[in-house]
Write a protein that binds this DNA or RNA. Structure first.
Lengths: 252, 252
DNA sequence: GAAAGAAAATGATTGACATTGATTGAAAAT
DNA sequence: ATTTTCAATCAATGTCAATCATTTTCTTTC
């Protein structure tokens, strides 16, 4: 059997079962354990699988599905998110210089933007692609790519937006809490989110109603730093601290 | 049997089985192994299949198309490009700080890099993703995304690498000419390529033999600025101007 | 149209190189 | 402490590109 054929069969088996042992592969592919070990080592070097004691483990490959692999997560509350995104998009005007945060909610709003001369900066790869595709002038920040979300984060990216002064920025968040403000689970993401908010004349946070009274690990801005665009506001106490636009209830 | 008939039967078999060995083809098509080898070599040069040890593998067109639109262009000279990429990868050592230019040739070389502690900066989105996935520390430059190639270009990107001092950089090129140096069709690409070469202690240009004596619109470096890694050197006069490594001919 | 010559394709051979499976002592898991 | 797994090594086998002689195909010339 050809080396390449073994490779693809090993990878195929991994995709099915998640993990597979050297012994198993050896008998399944009718070849010696030595060879299987060598194959696993080679595939591991190529990053196609993860070598573990006794066999191999599948590596979650996000290479191919470059644009929409976050769909599963974003499938929830589609309607609400869409309404939020639509409203947020209308706030962008022709002379705006806008920062768009990475994430699924902000990705949605790009479809509804109509401001041909607006200029965009974003740390989301899919966001930049989409904007360019729609004919907008769009820039990505420099820095490290986070594979799962295709966001660019880290000190490098923070630095790369420090020369800008945005008229508006649109951020996602994982939690909104009166005392802890806007929070996100990752410290690198928090850093760039925070910097973007500080460098914007107006900051908008897009969040569906499930995000209220939630706290995640790292705060990137306090409530008073940004307006919130949400679908419905169940907790009136938040209104004391910042401007909140609830797209489902107000006017229409 | 006609040459063209063998070609199509080989490709047909590949489509069915994914991989096929020289021995198998030899008995199936009633012809010598020598001929089969020659056929496979020819088809591989055309990019219709991938040559592997012991036989041939079908080209996985789905992977290529999703990763870059330049399929047609990149399909040619696959073998040569791979050899160039392989050699280039071996020059990267563990303590290197490397700039990787966007483009298909440089994307190829990432598969063969083995230097766990090397750090990478690139203006190619697929490049950054691949490097991260392989566990390397990798950064993307900031700036404007070019949709077709998923490269980041423009003044912004030039500025974002100006703080770095690379030990090595690996560049693609569209033309190599003694008087005009290394050239590329796009001025934005030329700007960042040029800056990367200037900021590197060693610069390597990866180019198959078809690039020699070609001139494109914008020069990004002169011949003496970079070593050339190529498959075969047909024009000896270039050797007067820079160091050239031809991976096919030299002491194999 | 036939003969002669040139060019291309083929098959066999060869030494160099790559892959394989078995073996071994070291390392890791239990 | 025992068993399993591992990487390194080695001999045997399989595969490779290069070369050459032979055959086939295409041109040229008469």
């Amino acid at each position: 059997m050809l080396l390449e054929e073994r490779f693809s069969r090993i990878l195929h088996l991994l995709k099915q079962k998640g993990t597979v042992s050297v012994t198993e592969l050896s008998s399944l592919l009718h070849t010696s354990e030595s060879t299987i070990r060598r194959d696993i080592a080679a595939l591991s070097r190529q990053g196609k699988l993860k070598k573990v004691y006794g066999g191999a483990k599948a590596v979650d490959s996000t290479i191919l599905t470059s644009e929409f692999d976050v769909q599963t997560k974003s499938a929830m509350n589609v309607e609400e998110k869409t309404k939020i995104a639509q409203y947020a998009a209308t706030t962008i005007q022709n002379d705006d210089f806008v920062y768009i945060d990475a994430g699924t909610t902000t990705l949605l709003m790009l479809d509804y933007i109509d401001a041909p001369n607006a200029v965009f900066v974003t740390n989301g790869i899919p966001h930049a692609k989409k904007l360019i595709q729609k004919g907008y002038q769009a820039y990505v920040t420099g820095g490290q790519i986070k594979l799962a979300t295709e966001a660019i984060v880290g000190a490098e990216s923070v630095q790369s937006i420090q020369k800008y002064n945005f008229t508006k920025c649109f951020m996602g968040t994982n939690g909104i809490d009166i005392k802890r403000g806007f929070t996100t689970p990752n410290i690198d993401e928090a850093l760039i989110k925070g910097e973007a908010v500080r460098r914007s004349y107006m900051a908008y946070v897009l969040a569906d109603h499930t995000k209220f009274r939630q706290v995640s690990s790292v705060t990137f801005a306090s409530l008073s730093d940004a307006c919130i665009i949400t679908d419905q506001l169940n907790f009136k106490e938040f209104e004391e601290y910042t401007v909140i636009k609830a797209v489902n209830t107000d006017h229409q």
